[in-house]
């Protein structure tokens, strides 16, 4: 478990920290051309998110602002930017890496805690209601197979996922 480190000591090394995480490897290739922003469906409707801006902040080492803010959670993972980035920055994956670091640092939006608990309990992130399950026979659908909850639990315990402390911070 990584705890929030002193901001100053990490300022210089934030891009390095991102680069060394799965998904974050390409961040320093960014030269701020804005192709991502112009491709982004989210940036089109809200000023709260701009992929270029998120990467710029991260490259400047503004760790606290990036991790505690709402911007990184506003990427819709559509990969439009990633396809078109002329520097082959894997932008959507960089945002995953940033989200992973944010969660490890205790910044977890509510909805993600819910996804995690669904996974840990049922092996699925969307619970299945009794109503829909009963209706299956009406439509001639076979009974649902059970989910491999035990296997999932073992995987989660190996990666430390089940030990993540789900601070309920609410929507930033």
């Amino acid at each position: 478990m990584v705890h929030e480190k002193d901001d100053e000591t990490l300022r210089a090394g934030f891009s390095g920290e991102i680069k060394h995480r799965l998904g974050g490897e390409t961040i320093t290739l960014c030269y701020q051309c804005g192709t991502c922003a112009a491709s982004c469906p989210v940036a089109k409707v809200t000023e709260k998110f701009n992929p270029r801006g998120v990467i710029k902040l991260a490259l400047l080492g503004e760790r606290q602002e990036v991790l505690s803010g709402s911007a990184i959670w506003l990427c819709s993972s559509c990969y439009n930017c990633q396809e078109r980035c002329p520097q082959k920055v894997e932008i959507a994956d960089v945002i995953y890496a940033l989200r992973n670091i944010a969660i490890m640092s205790g910044h977890t939006p509510n909805i993600y805690s819910e996804f995690a608990s669904g996974l840990m309990k049922e092996g699925r992130i969307v619970p299945i209601s009794k109503f829909v399950e009963k209706k299956r026979t009406d439509y001639g659908l076979p009974p649902l197979k059970s989910a491999g909850v035990e296997a999932i639990k073992k995987i989660l315990s190996t990666t430390g996922f089940d030990k993540i402390q789900w601070k309920k911070e609410g929507t930033p």
């Binding site: 992973n100 969660i103 996804f115």
Partner: peptide, 10 residues
């Protein structure tokens, strides 16, 4: 993606 957001390796 919601789970990838929590931990890519998992």
């Amino acid at each position: 993606p919601p789970l990838q957001s929590i931990d890519l390796e998992t």
